[in-house]
């Protein structure tokens, strides 16, 4: 808060309390709960990867082991190993950590950029809006994978560049949503009141408008986490993703997909299930949140 708040207005719930309340509302949507549960499971796997992964994800132990086969030291490969003998379960767990980390970093960064652009466009309007909206139209007219392939081919494949590409490609979409909500909220009385109090434009945008725009943004954030997870996997699949040998799901699929038809389908199908399950979690969570928020 800034220093220009003299009067003691009865404060509504803080953002934190509101957040807790909207999560608690989720229990009204079983589908949303299920999605949240899936996401939570992957988050726990990611956080405790060092404890939970039974093997080192990068060390070749026993090539072409099926699920249930045993390592030379007697431990079981629950999900088998890949073509160079790395434990698939451990690689899925560590890969999940990497995917979740980069998906979160990329989506959050895209949100910071998208929110700033959307708030400016919707609040200042005029030429700022025209320029930003035109820019958004240009970016959004690219088929998104074409844009990703061209950006990554230009700047090179690395974690930071993936974050950059996601910010570049998806912040215009976020901007459009924020702009729409901002245009609506900016006509409310409490905004006029804040303007009369003499608050600066950024204070109004960030403190008065943004918290009231959070409903559609939270839903969109979950959906976008899903998209970004898909994107990171797709880039890995196309050979433009996070650099090997550390595991990421898309890379695991592309390295082993030749063996699917050769009798070892588990190698590529298991990471394919992992990415689908996580995306399903995000989509169901978004669906549940949308349902709950529409009920209010």
């Amino acid at each position: 808060m800034t220093d220009s708040q003299p009067e003691a207005i009865p404060q509504p719930d803080s953002l934190f309390v509101k957040g807790i309340k909207s999560i608690a509302l989720l229990k009204e949507s079983p589908v949303g709960m299920f999605g949240g549960f899936i996401v939570l499971m992957f988050v726990i796997l990611a956080i405790f990867a060092p404890i939970l992964a039974p093997f080192d994800p990068n060390s070749p132990i026993l090539p072409f082991a099926y699920p249930g086969d045993r390592a030379p030291d007697g431990r079981m490969f629950l999900l088998g190993t890949d073509h160079i003998g790395r434990d698939i379960l451990s690689r899925i767990i560590w890969g999940g950590q990497r995917v979740l980390f980069y998906a979160t970093a990329a989506t959050l960064s895209a949100y910071v950029v998208g929110i700033i652009m959307g708030l400016s466009a919707g609040y200042f309007r005029g030429w700022i809006d025209e320029v930003l909206s035109f820019f958004a139209n240009v970016i959004l007219s690219f088929p998104i994978m074409v844009l990703y392939v061209m950006i990554i081919a230009k700047v090179g494949a690395s974690g930071a560049n993936i974050v950059f590409a996601v910010v570049f490609a998806s912040s215009p979409g976020i901007m459009r949503i924020v702009r729409g909500v901002t245009l609506d909220i900016a006509t409310r009385d409490y905004i006029a009141a804040a303007q009369t109090r003499g608050e600066g434009p950024w204070y109004i945008m960030l403190v008065e408008i943004l918290p009231n725009a959070r409903g559609p943004l939270i839903v969109d954030f979950c959906l976008r986490m899903g998209y970004t997870t898909i994107t990171i996997g797709a880039l890995g699949f196309l050979g433009l993703g996070l650099p090997p040998p550390d595991p990421d799901w898309g890379g695991m699929i592309t390295e082993t997909r030749a063996f699917v038809t050769g009798g070892f389908p588990h190698m590529a199908i298991l990471p394919a299930f992992a990415v689908s399950l996580l995306v399903l979690g995000f989509n169901l969570l978004a669906d549940g949140l949308r349902e709950v928020s529409m009920r209010d």
Partner: peptide, 10 residues
């Protein structure tokens, strides 16, 4: 929720 590269191998 099943991206193309996942359904392709499945």
């Amino acid at each position: 929720s099943v991206p193309e590269y996942a359904s392709a191998v499945i």
